[in-house]
């Protein structure tokens, strides 16, 4: 379990992390979401013991990161932002170094390296200098060193940043495939990632946690949650349909696009779609598409971090 209490970090005048507290239990995959410079990386650097907090405490399974640093760090696997690695080394010698630091003897090291090589599919580049590797392979080497000691806590700072869609998919699969008794913390500014891998999402803005919930709850905060989109076949129908939809009690508003009507519900109780479906049937409207939205994370993200359009309840 990880317990963070009143964590604060000040760089001169700048308050990078401002009184953050949270707990994470095994099995949770927590996503730190936030604009660049919000304090995600700084928080992770304090969790892993790279930066000393100005105030507050971090406890990793009962080990304080400041007073019992080594015991805490032994339980953590960490991928720093940008995947730093000793470029002149080969993945094999690099992983061997990490495994040795992690306390494995020679035969165990060979075993551990074989294990992570398999998971990360590094076999083909194992004896090539890291500086010659592609971004995707470098990232995989970074992930391999983070999981080589089968850590209880995995801290990954923007693990999929700059990867192509296939590589992103692989990394997410890897994270999801980790056993259920681990704690994973990832930071990202990619919204789709949150829904794809996280069981919990904390939105950080200006050094504060402004929202801490499940990805689903986050979607529900969207004013587009349970909104219904109608795509028409004939453009002339748009105004007529919009007028009729506006008359319904369950409709709050209707937004018109070129071919689409987006109907925002009055209440998020699931009553909108059946009502619209009924209407479509009664009036015998010809539609190309009719579907319900889950909610738009980008809109929620913007409204929470910028104080933009009000978040519907």
């Amino acid at each position: 379990m990880i317990e963070v209490t009143h964590l604060q970090k000040r760089f001169g005048q700048l308050l990078a992390v401002d009184d953050i507290s949270f707990k994470i239990v095994p099995g949770e995959i927590l996503g730190f979401l936030g604009p660049n410079g919000a304090g995600k990386s700084t928080t992770m650097k304090m969790l892993t013991g790279f930066l000393a907090p100005t105030m507050g405490k971090v406890s990793i399974w009962g080990c304080d990161i400041e007073t019992d640093k080594l015991s805490a760090q032994k339980q953590i696997g960490y991928l720093p932002e940008g995947t730093p690695a000793y470029e002149e080394m080969t993945p094999r010698s690099f992983l061997d170094f990490i495994a040795e630091v992690r306390g494995y003897n020679k035969s165990e090291r060979v075993e551990r390296i074989a294990f992570v090589t398999e998971i990360m599919a590094l076999e083909s580049v194992l004896d090539q200098r890291i500086e010659t590797l592609s971004k995707g392979f470098k990232r995989r080497v970074g992930l391999a060193q983070a999981i080589i000691h089968d850590p209880k806590v995995l801290v990954l700072d923007e693990p999929t940043d700059g990867l192509d869609p296939n590589q992103k998919y692989q990394v997410r699969e890897m994270i999801r495939g980790l056993s259920k008794d681990k704690i994973v913390i990832i930071s990202t500014h990619i919204l789709e990632e949150i829904a794809a891998v996280c069981t919990r999402v904390a939105i950080i803005s200006n050094g504060k946690i402004v929202s801490d919930c499940t990805p689903r709850e986050l979607e529900e905060k969207s004013r587009y949650h349970q909104a219904v989109t109608l795509k028409v076949k004939v453009q002339e129908d748009l105004s007529k349909f919009a007028g009729r939809l506006n008359d319904l009690d369950v409709v709050r508003s209707v937004e018109k696009n070129e071919w689409e009507l987006l109907v925002i519900p009055e209440h998020k109780d699931g009553s909108l779609l059946p009502a619209i479906a009924n209407l479509v049937k009664e009036e015998d409207w010809q539609l190309a598409e009719l579907f319900q939205e889950k909610g738009r994370l980008d809109e929620v993200f913007r409204s929470i971090t910028e104080g933009g359009p009000h978040v519907g309840s």
């Binding site: 650097k45 892993t48 013991g49 790279f50 080594l70 760090q73 032994k74 953590i76 960490y78 720093p80 932002e81 940008g82 730093p84 690695a85 000793y86 470029e87 990490i98 630091v101 992690r102 306390g103 060193q145």
Partner: peptide, 14 residues
């Protein structure tokens, strides 16, 4: 410069 210091300092080494 290369950021490896972050890796090195977060390994269980004094």
């Amino acid at each position: 410069k290369s950021g490896t210091i972050e890796l090195l300092m977060t390994l269980p080494l004094t």
